[in-house]
Computed example of a mutant assay.
Amino acid sequence: MAHRTPDWLLERIALGELPPEELAAARARLAAEPGGLERLAKREADDGATLAKLPPSQVAAEVARRHRAVEASHSKPVSPARRWLPALALGVPVAAGLALLVLVSQRELPEEPRPQQAVLLETTRTKGLEPKLLIHRQTRGAPEPLADSARVRPGDVLQLSYVSGGRSHGAVLSIDGRGSVTLHAPESPTGPLALKGGTVPLPSAYALDDAPAFERFFFVTSDEPFDVNALMESARELAREPERARREPLPLPPRLSQSSLTLEKEPGT
């Protein structure tokens, strides 16, 4: 009989509660398991729908409680997330969606291992699990996941998240139809972002401007630190030719891997 990931482990995978290496191994097992990724997607959607229905005060209280628990478990203060667009300004449903993403990244409290855990989880990165970028558009209801080539409009508010795939360092940037390059993470080009395990939202939501045609988001990763300024120069070089920037990869050295997701811009009203 084929192995089936138990529900308790599926929940921990959905919430990113496992150490990075174990999470990578668990996700790879799900990918190989019949219907595994579909079960994970349904669990993540159920978690989002549940949180979106909570009263705003309960959402805020839960986020604050989890934040305090993480601070206590790490024995050091955690700086508040900087947002380009504050959650309160986005309205209650959007704030609930952002709160869900924050909860996913912050639920890192230690837990006693279950008996099956040593058998089910490996401690090395599993071959074939690749880093990826996730984008959700904020709506009046639950956040809407956007696939490659999804159509968007100026003013749409996006939450970017990443899955590290076991890589230790990364950066997120975008190129738009005007040839502008925006660095989304890290906050400054002094060094790459230290990646975490699980599905990790960036600390700031991002509102699309009126640049025409498209906005293409890149997630660049490595197993060692790299020069973010050099990465931005490579992005600017590609951005000089918008049609190339829409389709071709960034000109990067082989030690850096990249993935991208392109959103097609509709004219604003």
Rank of each mutant, 00 (worst) to 15 (best):
A41M: 09
L109T: 01
A60G: 06
K53D: 13
E62Y: 11
A64P: 02
L51G: 02
R43G: 01
E38P: 02
S57C: 03
R82S: 01
A49Q: 14
E17L: 03
V92Q: 09
G36S: 07
L23E: 15
L18F: 11
R83M: 11
R27W: 11
V104D: 08
P80M: 06
V94C: 13
R82F: 05
L109P: 02
G91I: 10
H74M: 10
G97K: 03
R65V: 00
A28I: 01
L109G: 08
A87Y: 05
A95V: 11
Q106S: 10
K53L: 15
A31C: 03
R43W: 07
E21A: 15
P110M: 07
A95N: 04
L101G: 01
E71L: 03
A69P: 03
T50R: 14
L18P: 04
D47V: 03
P56D: 08
K53P: 02
L23H: 15
T50Q: 05
T50S: 09
E33C: 07
K76D: 07
P19A: 13
P80D: 05
S73Q: 08
R114G: 10
S57W: 00
A61T: 05
L37C: 04
P80S: 01
R68L: 15
D46R: 13
L18V: 06
H67F: 13
P77C: 01
A64V: 03
A32E: 10
A60P: 00
A95Y: 05
A60H: 04
A24E: 02
Q58R: 14
H74D: 08
P55Y: 06
V104L: 08
G48C: 09
E112D: 13
A52S: 10
L98G: 06
E112I: 03
V63P: 01
L23P: 00
D46P: 02
Q58L: 10
P113S: 02
R65F: 07
L88D: 12
P77N: 03
L37I: 12
S105E: 12
V59I: 09
A95S: 14
P113D: 01
S79G: 11
G91C: 13
L18I: 10
P56C: 04
E22W: 09
L109E: 11
L90E: 12
G48P: 00
A28E: 10
R83D: 15
V94H: 09
A89M: 07
A89I: 01
P113E: 01
S57K: 08
L90F: 07
P115H: 00
K42R: 15
A49E: 14
A31E: 12
P113V: 03
H67A: 10
E17C: 12
E108Q: 14
A49M: 08
S73D: 11
V92W: 09
S105N: 03
A61C: 04
L30V: 00
A49F: 07
R39L: 07
A41H: 05
P20M: 04
L85N: 12
P19W: 05
E112M: 08
P56A: 06
H67Y: 11
A28G: 08
